[in-house]
Measured scan of single mutants.
Amino acid sequence: MAEQVALSRTQVCGILREELFQGDAFHQSDTHIFIIMGASGDLAKKKIYPTIWWLFRDGLLPENTFIVGYARSRLTVADIRKQSEPFFKATPEEKLKLEDFFARNSYVAGQYDDAASYQRLNSHMNALHLGSQANRLFYLALPPTVYEAVTKNIHESCMSQIGWNRIIVEKPFGRDLQSSDRLSNHISSLFREDQIYRIDHYLGKEMVQNLMVLRFANRIFGPIWNRDNIACVILTFKEPFGTEGRGGYFDEFGIIRDVMQNHLLQMLCLVAMEKPASTNSDDVRDEKVKVLKCISEVQANNVVLGQYVGNPDGEGEATKGYLDDPTVPRGSTTATFAAVVLYVENERWDGVPFILRCGKALNERKAEVRLQFHDVAGDIFHQQCKRNELVIRVQPNEAVYTKMMTKKPGMFFNPEESELDLTYGNRYKNVKLPDAYERLILDVFCGSQMHFVRSDELREAWRIFTPLLHQIELEKPKPIPYIYGSRGPTEADELMKRVGFQYEGTYKWVNP
């Protein structure tokens, strides 16, 4: 592979701008107003304001973009700056750019259920340069409990009458099928589907988006991507930290609602779906819905739930269990780990287990898709061969690698495990991989909904998990304890083995 010439960040961002501006969906010269509902909250200060700053800094926003914060707290732009700027990672050389960014910011205080507050917000936006005809993007960085009041008031008082209007809704989209349907029906009564952007930030990850290209742009994968060759698929999300004093919020939802029903299920769809007619948003989402419709409700015998306990040999936070978090209700049975087996009941995947695993306070930070292939028929190497695996590593250190057998150097035919490896950090030294939120917010500006969740996708996802969630809430089974920093409950490994996964433990990928 030829040595790549190092590029400056300015040059890299210039390439990104060229890609972005050559499309006809990006209205570079139009006025846009980006409204952050819930501007005083954690999500706004840690993710949304920093993301908008990065896009502005790199010249990736339309030229005439204004940012308006809205929340109940009586704040000023200076207050917003004070709480969000520490997350910007701005350099001293960017000081003038930073001043320009905050000059485009404003803030309006108001209630979430008060019509007069929204009329005041609308008047404020109209007073901005060309504000009355601007395109408006409303980001709901809010708890779902206020979605209905907020969307109703936005629709009645704050819509642009000339430009387009788009609304970005953060997960969780309800707690179960019934609450999700209620919320979807409410929002759909106010906005068209092409105006609604239900954001799952995992769909903005580079390697998640790469799944489609790997599958449908490489001839070698087509013939082997089926039940005849693939023994099982494992989708993993692991965090090495616990709730760390923020367990009160987590306890309301648990690990299945927080990660599995959305992030992991979306990745499953991209692995299992048929080739779409095109890369058009609805063509892709149509195929994802077909996959979900082929999955039956989760069966309790295919589920393992766990909850982390303190590690007596650990240090600091590792010595504390979930129930030691003062914000967690006493005696909570909320799971911090889950392993679930699903089956896609169609011709391509009949009988292939899709194993979804996620948890907190585990032994490493990792998100990946792992396809394990069947054993080689007619073994001539005296059971020395391990199964081939194709691994798409989402985070950290984005990579695609194939675990395969090669001859060990020497005189004899002794096979050993090795890999074919594409590590993004080595291959793409001159490429700026956008943060997931950067990519998705740019998608909203461009009107691309491919990486957002459609209402029928959402409904099918909740259909699969709601009976299990209701059973857990009714019966309150005690989750299996696992030690902070471990791989999780051993019962999860036993479940995976029972459905056909072979864990060798003899080879570990190392970032080159």
Results as ranks from 00 to 15, higher is better:
P172Q: 02
G163S: 11
A116G: 12
P172D: 02
R104T: 05
V12H: 15
T145C: 05
S132G: 15
W164Y: 15
F241H: 09
V150P: 05
Q11A: 15
F88Q: 05
E156H: 14
Q178T: 13
F102T: 02
E170A: 04
R215F: 00
D228R: 07
C232M: 07
Y202P: 01
K205D: 00
F237H: 08
K45W: 05
P86A: 12
K238L: 01
I80V: 14
F21H: 08
S180F: 05
L61K: 02
P172H: 00
Q28V: 09
V169T: 06
I15K: 15
I230A: 05
S157P: 01
F253E: 02
L7M: 15
V213A: 12
P143A: 07
N122W: 08
K82P: 06
M212N: 02
V68H: 01
V77E: 12
Y197A: 03
I36Y: 03
N226H: 09
I220C: 12
R17P: 15
V233F: 04
Y70D: 04
L96N: 14
L60H: 07
C232W: 01
K47M: 04
F237Y: 00
D200E: 04
N185S: 12
N153Q: 13
A25F: 12
R198F: 05
Y49G: 02
P86H: 10
T91K: 11
K238A: 06
R219M: 08
V68T: 06
I255E: 05
N122E: 12
F216Y: 05
E239I: 02
G222M: 11
C158Y: 04
A127K: 13
G174N: 00
N185R: 11
A149H: 13
S40V: 02
V12D: 11
E99F: 05
A44F: 00
G59I: 00
F221Q: 05
R72S: 00
F250W: 04
F34G: 01
D24H: 10
N64K: 13
Q83N: 10
S117F: 09
L61D: 00
I80E: 00
E170H: 04
M37H: 12
A71D: 01
A78P: 12
Q11L: 10
I199E: 04
Q161W: 12
I154M: 09
F241E: 04
D58G: 06
N229Y: 05
L142C: 04
V12P: 15
L98F: 07
F88E: 02
M212F: 07
I196R: 02
E63P: 13
K205P: 02
H129Y: 14
D200L: 03
I154E: 03
L61H: 01
R246T: 00
R246L: 02
Y249I: 03
C158F: 07
N226A: 07
A115C: 15
L137N: 05
A71I: 03
G110R: 01
L211R: 03
R17M: 11
G254D: 02
G59A: 07
N229P: 00
L20C: 06
S123W: 14
A141I: 03
I80R: 01
A134T: 14
K89E: 15
C232Q: 13
R246H: 02
L7N: 15
I162L: 13
T236R: 01
H129A: 14
L177V: 12
M207G: 06
Q195W: 06
P144R: 02
F21R: 15
L235H: 03
G59H: 07
L137V: 11
G204T: 00
A44S: 07
E252D: 09
N226I: 05
T76M: 10
H32Q: 09
D24I: 10
E148I: 10
V68D: 00
F102E: 03
Y249V: 02
A103R: 15
I48M: 06
G14A: 15
G254E: 01
L75K: 10
T51I: 08
G41N: 03
L211Y: 04
L20A: 15
G23F: 13
N165Y: 06
E63W: 09
V213L: 13
L214G: 02
I48W: 02
N122M: 13
H32P: 09
E94I: 00
K46S: 03
F173Y: 09
A231Y: 05
R104A: 07
I154L: 14
L211N: 00
L203Y: 01
F173V: 06
N229S: 09
G14W: 13
E252A: 10
F87D: 06
V12F: 15
Q161I: 13
N210G: 08
L190E: 07
G41C: 02
Q83E: 12
A71W: 05
F102L: 07
N229K: 00
A39R: 04
Y107T: 07
F101W: 04
L177Q: 09
E63L: 15
F66S: 08
Q83M: 12
E93N: 14
Q195R: 04
A109Y: 15
R136N: 12
I48L: 05
D114L: 11
Y147T: 00
I154W: 02
P50D: 01
L16W: 09
S180C: 06
G59V: 01
L190S: 08
Y70W: 07
F102M: 08
L140E: 03
H186W: 08
N105A: 06
P50M: 04
D79P: 01
F102C: 06
I196D: 00
A6W: 15
P86K: 09
D228P: 05
Q119V: 12
D176P: 02
Y49C: 00
P240A: 07
Q119C: 15
H201Y: 01
I80T: 05
Q178K: 14
F216M: 02
D113C: 12
Y112L: 01
S117P: 14
T31R: 15
L177P: 00
F101T: 03
F241A: 05
D58W: 08
R175D: 07
F87V: 06
W53E: 00
Y118W: 13
Q111T: 15
K238T: 01
M207Q: 07
G38M: 04
T76E: 13
Y139F: 08
I52T: 06
D42Y: 03
R120N: 14
F101R: 01
N105V: 10
V233E: 01
I196M: 09
L7C: 04
K97M: 13
Y107F: 13
G247T: 06
G174S: 03
N135H: 12
D58V: 09
S117I: 08
S106Q: 11
V108I: 14
R17D: 15
E148H: 10
S29D: 12
G131D: 12
A2E: 10
N153D: 09
L203T: 03
D181T: 11
P62G: 08
G131C: 10
D100P: 02
I15V: 12
R166P: 01
A141R: 02
G174F: 01
A103M: 15
L177I: 10
G163L: 05
S123H: 15
D42N: 05
L61Q: 03
I167P: 04
